[in-house]
Design a protein around this nucleic acid. Structure first.
Lengths: 345, 345
DNA sequence: CTGAAAGCGCTAACAT
DNA sequence: ATGTTAGCGCTTTCAG
């Protein structure tokens, strides 16, 4: 390891000056600056960030904690964060919690030892308490909110997105619109459900609890939940489904296929969050698309602003985009309530 | 920040003993160990890994450099690496190169300052030279090889996987089998191409350079390459396509759709590397599946073995799995060469 | 088995 | 504008 001392020696200055020349050039004569720069270059000097961080009591490092890096939505968030951090000379320490509060706690503990300057986190329901492990650390909550007082949050307008999706279904004439919704201890799921409720109300449709099934965000959950809804008796089975996230949307489509239901003829379906598979499936799925990459970059920019003492809004909401594709269509006549055979007297 | 000194004070021992009690318990009396442990617990002590690493001249940190975190294959590799590292108390510093040699160089430079104990890298073609930035660092090359002498590599048997795929197509009676192949400066692309060549030879089919189109691994490249192949004149157009990676496979399917070609009736298609979309598209795509997660865990395990001085093979090859689905079928009669109208004398 | 002392590489006071 | 000095928090000789 070539250290600052050797650079200093070669440039015939003290280590302190060498340090200044490299990190705060304005404090040093141009000639010395150049000499030091040349020496560093010649020796292939790279600062030891550990020593620097130790001395400065803080590293040029950011923590990023997501709940599922295998979900392309999260991978895209991560890319956004990384790209911005990178451009500003920050290194990102990324952790994965698999939606488990225990892993989140361990991630925070590990992170703490690295003295990060800030944290961007997609919080699990336990984040509210886990974040106590990182007192005084600037935190941006991304995609969801933990409900902590004074937290900074970058997220999407889930309620409006869901409202748009369900209104679309209602406008197509659907009267029994089911929802596969995430766990209600996660803010996005709550908000998407709220949008669903409001859209039903505005369309003059009743809210039926039996048409709403919860799931744990995974494909298998979506499949099971959709299966339950789609095997309801003919007159009660929903003719349309709104699914709360991208993975569960695949599951719902597979459930429909299992049952021999044709999209959009036998069932209309809208998913929340776009994905490669939503685009390439047949039929292509109508979705509420989220600006995942922008969420990531914005979260990171917001954190950096915070670190530099700039004024930052507590809550930034980005809009979703309703993307109509081929999985939604008007209710076919034989599905409308009037057409259902009712046992007469 | 509660430091070791405070823990020591509370436990009524010297900082040195406190350190030993926490990290090398066997050097200390059981009673003291317990006392220190309790003190640390009580104060919520977390070691400052920066100070520790500085002192030890090396951190419990591993570098991970992938070329495209948005590609689920890479995300899965990363998850595998992380899970193992995590279980062994290592923190992973992950970087993304977007397949750009310049970003790779910067990633290596940044990494160096963090004094990682080892590196796992999916090398770009420039890695051969970029790796000079990290002399003496144990390196595992993952998925591809840079060709560096003495490198350790964990990868898949690309040649055999490709051979299997193309043999399958030949067995179905296809005689004009095209390939969309990655850039030839990447070892996987070279090997997959080699498998293609050998399968053709074994099936007694000629190798036709005009049926092989290169692409840069992205969907758009696959689409363009496939478009070129599929718009060849009727008698020369391939009746089957083997596509070199997952993203380009989507592209190829889209190209076929653009041209109104029906899979598998008008065109058989096999992709390399499985994906969610390959499974959910209609028809589901036949693929050569890679054990991505296992590659990741194995790479990390191999690196840790190396760090602990255990004997490790220079090259570990995992097998692929041929997964037949619905995108491949026998050549329909009207496509066979005999059926093509040839201008007679 | 435990303590005292030194030092990892760097930067921030303080001096000049 | 530059050098001197001290010390970030930890681990590791070296003594005892």
């Amino acid at each position: 390891m070539v250290g600052l001392e050797e650079v200093a020696k070669l440039a015939r200055v003290s280590p302190a000056t060498a340090s200044r020349a490299l990190t705060r050039p304005e404090l040093v004569a141009e000639a010395t600056r150049a000499r030091v720069a040349r020496a560093a270059e010649a020796l292939g000097y790279r600062p030891n960030v550990l020593a620097r961080s130790l001395r400065q009591r803080g590293s040029r490092t950011l923590g990023l904690v997501v709940t599922d890096i295998l979900n392309p939505f999260h991978a895209t968030l991560a890319k956004g964060v990384q790209d911005v951090a990178d451009a500003q000379g920050y290194t990102v320490l990324m952790f994965n919690t698999d939606e488990e509060s225990d892993k989140e706690r361990r991630a925070f503990e590990t992170l703490r030892g690295h003295l990060p300057r800030g944290l961007i986190v997609v919080p699990t329901p336990a984040a509210h308490v886990n974040l106590d492990l990182l007192p005084d650390l600037p935190v941006i909550e991304l995609d969801r909110t933990s409900g902590r007082a004074g937290a900074h949050t970058v997220m999407v307008d889930n309620e409006a997105g869901a409202y748009r999706a369900v209104s679309h279904l209602a406008a197509l004439g659907h009267r029994r619109i089911g929802m596969v919704v995430g766990q209600q201890d996660i803010s996005t799921a709550v908000e998407r459900h709220a949008g669903y409720v409001r859209a039903l109300a505005d369309a003059g449709l009743p809210y039926r609890p039996d048409l709403v099934r919860p799931g744990h965000h995974r494909e298998a959950d979506g499949r099971a939940a959709a299966h339950t809804l789609l095997t309801l008796p003919p007159g009660e089975r929903p003719t349309a489904l709104f699914v709360g996230n991208n993975e569960m949307t695949v599951g719902a489509v597979l459930a429909a296929r299992d049952l021999g239901l044709n999209l959009p003829h036998d069932l209309s379906l809208v998913g929340f969050d776009d994905s490669r598979w939503a685009q390439t499936m047949t039929p292509a799925i109508t979705v509420v698309a989220q600006p995942a990459y922008d969420l990531g970059t914005l979260a990171c920019r917001t954190l950096l602003d915070l670190l530099e003492g700039r004024e930052v809004p507590e809550l930034v909401r980005l809009s979703t985009t309703f993307t109509q594709r081929d999985s939604t269509a008007p209710v076919p006549a034989h599905h409308s309530p009037e057409a259902v055979a009712v046992p007469g007297p």
